[in-house]
Write a protein that binds this DNA or RNA. Structure first.
Lengths: 149, 149
DNA sequence: TAATAATACATGTATATACATATATTGTAC
DNA sequence: GTACAATATATGTATATACATGTATTATTA
């Protein structure tokens, strides 16, 4: 449904303002659906994000700094999120021997197994987005990338 | 920059998965810039959202329920946000006489004046998005609307 | 090498949010 | 009208986040 109808706002100052609102609204819409789909697994979106980055690095470790760089939401508190995951035994932490300020984080077998389950969950979730064709999804990707330039 | 480069993720399962990540990332990017631009005014994005809805209704009041319906982020706690705005004398509240469960919220002169300032702030903010033409912004709007259908 | 700056991360604290539950009021079924 | 469900909002509580500050370590510079 058109964003104006969705939030019952008749007019916008410009197409750009409408786009700003549309992106924020759509993201909140997506994010709450996505978060809800993760809920049965007891994991937050930010934690999921960290685990995926760690899988991408595996079997190499990632420092907390690298996690922050790559996270979708830069404002999240990576070191606290890592601690949450460690308590669940989904990741392990060790002080880096080359640079003792840094911490190496690595995903565990248990973490990788959980991710396998979460992948299936995400496949189901992505079906929701199939109102757009692959070409249209690509179009959004190109435009958003251009917007952030 | 292409989202894959931005978060240093080489590949995606599908264009749809990439789009999901791109929207979440772009929204976080936009939202932190937008929030920062509001900071000097001592107002959060959610509070700004509520004030704009109230201006749209003015001089009619809005109930808390109407605010929730129209807010960009449905998970926000509208009644607490209204209370925050009331303390700053930007809105007024009164129990509705027809339905004494409901609360009528109305924006004050001070609130409207602040919004006038915030409009100018937003104009400046929107310049950041001018890497896209109006046609491209419209294209994003059409695609996002279709996605949520 | 001593002093200072920079980096990586952790932590304290205030605020925000999520979710469940409570309270008051209104609507509905009998 | 009484009992029960539904609605509108408020509040309690746990967790999350934002931002500043602290601590340890490494790099730089005089």
């Amino acid at each position: 449904m058109e964003i104006g109808k969705e939030i019952k706002q008749a007019k916008f100052k410009s197409e750009h303002q409408k786009m700003l609102i549309n992106i924020l609204y759509t993201s909140s819409w997506l994010s709450s659906k996505h978060g809800a789909s993760l809920k049965p697994y007891g994991i937050s979106q930010q934690q999921y994000n960290i685990m995926r980055i760690l899988r991408g690095q595996h079997p190499k470790p990632a420092t907390v700094n690298l996690l922050i760089e790559r996270m979708l939401d830069k404002n999240s508190n990576a070191s606290r999120l890592v601690e949450k995951l460690r308590i669940k035994k989904l990741v392990e932490r060790a002080v880096c021997s080359e640079d003792r300020r840094a911490v190496n984080v690595i995903i565990t077998k248990k973490g990788l197994d959980l991710l396998t389950e979460l992948d299936q969950n995400e496949d189901l979730f992505l079906i929701n987005l199939k109102k757009l064709s692959a070409e249209e999804a690509e179009q959004i990707n190109l435009l958003l990338d251009k917007m952030r330039d």
